[in-house]
């Protein structure tokens, strides 16, 4: 025979247990759903736009977005009051960039400098992320081609159209270290089909570095530098150094900067920079970027 008192006490405890459960749940009802599925978070907004100053940043134009870029470099600021510190002259590049997918962008441009057309393809191979899938860096590949369309200097000679072509290839390895700081390295090679003299190299190897420091939510300080060993560069050519500010206002990004490079595509600013910062051979310039969403990709299904 079981002791009814003991049984009663046991039952009381047993029946009261839902109430005890209820007490535990005071903490958070959402805890009942268990841990959330791990998600991969990609680093975004490492730079305000796809260019640092002249150079490509590790950012890509988003899928379906057309980015219209208007870039100006005024004359050297040491040209004095007569040239109103360079503002009388301008080198211009008009460009269109398009995001074919989130990882692939293409672009076309026309520069007034040497009447150059350029085209490029930029593919993001690795994307910085945290969470379920961890990747410390973003890695992109950039290939550009330029065609100089100046009239032939010696039309009476046999001229080949291939002589007008130059190529640049670049790896962009970068990381957004914190909300405000991003750094990237750009090992690059430039190939020119035709060079001016027999002493000039067809292939020039250079290492670039670029970074961004966010000053406020909408203003950032950018800088980039390319180093090519001096004996590779043509006589009188220098390494490119540019410093500027990004100002973002919704759909526009205004980039205001100082650079010793006149040209705004890789082949030009890596190998044909002539200005010397210490002598005041500095261009003031700006890039204006305006984005248009021309195609809206279907939102990816969220996995639960």
């Amino acid at each position: 025979m079981i002791n009814p008192l003991k049984l009663g006490a046991a039952l009381l405890i047993f029946c009261a247990s839902p109430a005890l459960h209820a007490q535990e749940e005071e903490e958070s009802l959402l805890d009942l759903l268990g841990d959330e599925d791990p998600k991969t978070e990609y680093a975004t907004a490492s730079f305000k736009t796809t260019r640092i100053v002249n150079s490509h940043s590790l950012e890509n134009t988003h899928h379906g977005v057309l980015d219209v870029k208007i870039s100006h470099r005024f004359g050297f600021i040491n040209s004095g009051v007569y040239e109103i510190f360079g503002l009388d002259q301008a080198s211009i590049r008009l460009g269109l960039d398009y995001g074919v997918t989130d990882w692939l962008m293409v672009g076309l441009g026309r520069s007034s400098f040497e009447k150059t057309y350029d085209g490029f393809v930029k593919a993001r191979i690795l994307r910085q992320s945290s969470g379920e899938r961890k990747m410390p860096i973003t890695l992109s590949w950039l290939s550009t081609m330029t065609i100089n369309t100046l009239r032939w200097a010696y039309p009476e000679r046999v001229n080949f159209s291939t002589s007008r072509y130059a190529y640049a290839h670049q790896l962009i390895v970068g990381r957004k270290f914190s909300e405000g700081f991003t750094l990237q390295l750009m090992p690059s090679v430039v190939h020119r089909n035709l060079v001016a003299t027999a002493d000039d190299a067809h292939d020039i190897f250079a290492m670039g570095a670029g970074g961004r420091l966010k000053l406020t939510k909408r203003i950032a300080l950018n800088a980039e530098y390319y180093y090519a060993h001096p004996n590779q560069l043509d006589a009188g050519r220098r390494n490119s150094l540019s410093i500027g500010f990004d100002i973002e206002t919704g759909g526009h990004v205004f980039q205001l900067h100082f650079s010793n490079s006149t040209h705004m595509v890789e082949k030009g600013f890596i190998t044909e920079t002539t200005g010397n910062w210490l002598d005041g051979d500095i261009h003031f310039g700006f890039n204006i970027s305006r984005v248009f969403t021309v195609h809206r990709p279907k939102p990816k299904p969220v996995n639960y």
């Binding site: 975004t44 907004a45 988003h62 379906g64 977005v65 919704g250 759909g251 984005v291 969403t293 809206r296």
Partner: peptide, 8 residues
């Protein structure tokens, strides 16, 4: 709708 808007 706009990717940049989402980023901002």
């Amino acid at each position: 709708k706009k990717a940049l808007m989402q980023e901002h």
